[in-house]
Every structure is written in C-alpha cells, then in structure tokens.
C-alpha cells in the first residue's frame, strides 16, 4: 500500500519531485530571510549597547521599533 502511494500510478518521480522542490526552495527562502532578520536585529541591539544607558532608555521609550528589538534580544540573552 505504501509502495502504491509512493509510486503514484507510475508518476511518483514527477509528483514527489514537484512537491519536494517547492518545499526545498520555500525552506531556503525562509531560512535566508530569518537569518538576515536576526542578523540585523542583533546588529541594531549591539549598536544600542554602545550608547550610554540613559540615552538608550530614552530611545527605547520614544521608539517602539527599538523597544521591541531590545525586548526580543533580552529574551534571547
């Protein structure tokens, strides 16, 4: 029964290859996108760390983007 399912009426190669290629390329784009996002989040957090603590707190209060990045980085660390 499993062999029949994998064979797909003799067209298994074409069907499985289609689904496999879609999965692999979608995963590669997801992986690359996530890696880039994490890299920029980390870089921004490092730049913020270089600032004096008072300045950093003021920025975090005034910018939701910065406070969200700092919060996510704090969670990670």
């Amino acid at each position: 029964m499993i062999n029949e399912f994998l064979n797909m009426g003799g067209y298994g190669f074409y069907i499985w290859m289609s689904f496999l290629l879609v999965t692999v390329f979608c995963f590669l784009l997801y992986y690359k996108t996530r890696k880039t996002l994490k890299k920029y989040e980390k870089e921004l957090a490092l730049e913020l760390e270089k600032l004096p603590i008072e300045h950093r707190k003021r920025i975090a209060r005034s910018s939701k983007v910065i406070s969200s990045i700092l919060a996510s980085q704090n969670k990670l660390s």
Binding site: S62, S63, I66
Partner: peptide, 14 residues
C-alpha cells in the same frame, strides 16, 4: 528587516 535597516541607519539621530 527593512524597517530595522532604516532604524539602524538613523540611530545617531534618535
């Protein structure tokens, strides 16, 4: 990511 890139460029002005 694009928003973060912009914020990173403008960090000195914040």
């Amino acid at each position: 990511t694009e928003i973060i890139k912009i914020k990173k460029q403008n960090i000195k002005r914040l």
